[in-house]
Simulated assay, not measured.
Amino acid sequence: MGLKPLHDRVIVQRKAEEEKTAGGIYIPDSAKEKPQGGIIVAAGPECKTVAEGDIILFAKYAGSEFSMDGDELIIMREDDILGVFA
């Protein structure tokens, strides 16, 4: 990764969107919601509670989305993270 977050910021790669429901019904693109979970790709030097590789849950409108090397990423503050999966 060529981008290093500063202070208490983290870079997150959102997990993949669900293509179909548990019952087997396919979800059209217009009805899909963006997942609120992802994996931390990079963490700033002041991050105390999370590290690279952690799987997290974050607020719905957290951070700023950007594209890098064909990947859709989000940069957000550590405060926007709601929880870390153990």
Rank of each mutant, 00 (worst) to 15 (best):
E33K: 13
L6Y: 05
D79C: 04
L82S: 01
L6A: 12
S64D: 00
I75F: 14
K32N: 08
I11S: 11
F58K: 03
G63S: 09
K15L: 12
Q13R: 14
G37L: 10
V12Q: 09
E52P: 01
A22G: 05
T21P: 00
K20Q: 12
A62E: 02
F66T: 14
M1G: 09
L73M: 05
G83S: 10
I55W: 15
P28M: 03
T49A: 03
F66W: 13
A59H: 07
Q36L: 06
E17R: 14
M76P: 04
I55A: 11
I27K: 02
D80F: 09
S30C: 06
L73F: 04
K20Y: 11
E33C: 06
G37A: 12
L73T: 06
G44L: 05
E52A: 04
G53Y: 10
P28K: 02
L82A: 01
A22E: 11
D79M: 03
I81H: 00
G53W: 06
Q13S: 04
K34V: 11
C47V: 08
I25E: 13
R9V: 04
P28W: 11
Q13A: 00
V84C: 08
A42W: 10
G2T: 15
M1A: 06
K60A: 02
V41C: 00
K4P: 00
A43S: 14
R9L: 14
A51V: 11
D54T: 14
G24Y: 12
G37W: 13
R77T: 15
G2M: 00
M68K: 11
K60T: 14
P28S: 09
F66A: 07
A22D: 03
L82P: 06
P28C: 02
A31T: 02
E46C: 08
A62P: 07
I74K: 13
T49Q: 10
E78A: 06
C47I: 02
L3C: 00
V84A: 09
A22V: 13
V84P: 08
K48Q: 12
A42P: 01
V12S: 04
I39N: 04
K60Y: 03
D79L: 03
R14Y: 11
G70L: 13
P5I: 03
I39M: 05
I27T: 03
V84L: 06
G38I: 01
T49E: 14
D8Q: 01
A51P: 03
F58L: 08
I39P: 00
Q13K: 15
F58G: 01
K32W: 15
E46S: 06
P45Y: 13
E46H: 03
D54E: 10
L6F: 12
S67Y: 11
F58Q: 05
P45S: 08
L6D: 14
A42R: 14
K15A: 07
H7C: 14
D79I: 08
A59V: 11
G38W: 09
L73H: 05
P5A: 05
D69S: 10
A42K: 15
V41D: 05
I27L: 00
E18H: 02
S67R: 08
M1C: 10
